[in-house]
């Protein structure tokens, strides 16, 4: 790990480059986004041989980045032969932008999914659990991952993925892939206005039916006596 001297006097925290498992992690620190961006590119230009071919994770702090901005930066980095693999941010907007552009928002993807289930002593229901609310249709290739609840106002198309630690609520048609209670919470539920998932899993139990003929009306999926069942969503019980 090495640090470089700040470019301008008003920069309060320092720009850092760190080696991680999967490439390089650059922390931009605080300051104006345009200044930080300039500084990053300046640094890369100076050490182009070092950065050539690198897989870069970028910690942008709390900066709110829109798709055009982040996309342009990714292309600019691409011109230097750098692939932007992850964007770490405390801003939800920036995280969503990154996800939409197919850029990860964590350095190490959660590998727990594939591995053995965590023993469920008691499902943890934290009161202040964070929920993600997405107001758009999720198209093929998009993915939302959250440790709490995921709420989508729109359709979830085939090829889209939702992975939630808690419940998944879809005000629209569910045709894609959903995992609820991915950390082993068997009380998690999935509901949608039209339930025809490509695949659906709660905790470690999958819906074993093949893609179903769409039934009119909202339905919800939950675990009952060890299997995932789908039933009409008549009386919201939660």
């Amino acid at each position: 790990m090495f640090k470089s001297a700040p470019l301008t006097a008003e920069r309060s925290t320092e720009f850092q480059i760190k080696g991680i498992n999967d490439g390089l992690l650059v922390t931009l620190g605080e300051g104006e986004w345009s200044v930080l961006r300039e500084y990053l590119l300046h640094n890369i230009e100076e050490r182009s041989a070092f950065f050539q071919g690198a897989r870069l994770a970028l910690d942008v702090g709390d900066h709110v980045l829109k798709a055009a901005e982040l996309g342009a930066l990714r292309d600019k980095l691409g011109d230097f032969g750098i692939s932007l693999t992850a964007v770490i941010s405390s801003s939800v907007v920036t995280e969503k932008t990154a996800l939409m552009l197919g850029i990860a928002t964590q350095i190490q993807p959660v590998k727990r999914l594939a591995s053995a289930p965590k023993p469920v002593e008691e499902p943890v229901h934290v009161n202040g659990e964070t929920a993600v609310f997405l107001q758009k249709t999720m198209r093929s290739g998009t993915r939302i991952q959250n440790s709490g609840t995921v709420v989508v106002l729109g359709d979830v198309n085939p090829g889209a993925e939702i992975i939630a630690g808690g419940n998944v609520i879809i005000w629209g048609r569910l045709k894609g892939t959903v995992v609820a209670g991915c950390d082993g919470d068997e009380h998690a539920q999935v509901c949608a206005l039209e339930m025809t998932p490509m695949s659906l899993r709660i905790a470690n139990i999958s819906l074993d039916e093949k893609p179903r003929k769409s039934k009119p009306g909202p339905e919800f999926a939950s675990i009952e006596s060890g299997t995932v069942i789908i039933q009409p969503w008549k009386h919201p019980t939660y």
Binding site: K66, A67, A68, G71, T97, M100, L101, G102, M138, R139, S140, G141, T142, N157, P158, G159
Partner: peptide, 15 residues
């Protein structure tokens, strides 16, 4: 159609 859906999403995300 599946691929078109993906592309439409990418077009949206490129604004």
């Amino acid at each position: 159609v599946r691929d078109a859906d993906r592309i439409i999403g990418l077009v949206e995300s490129e604004e």
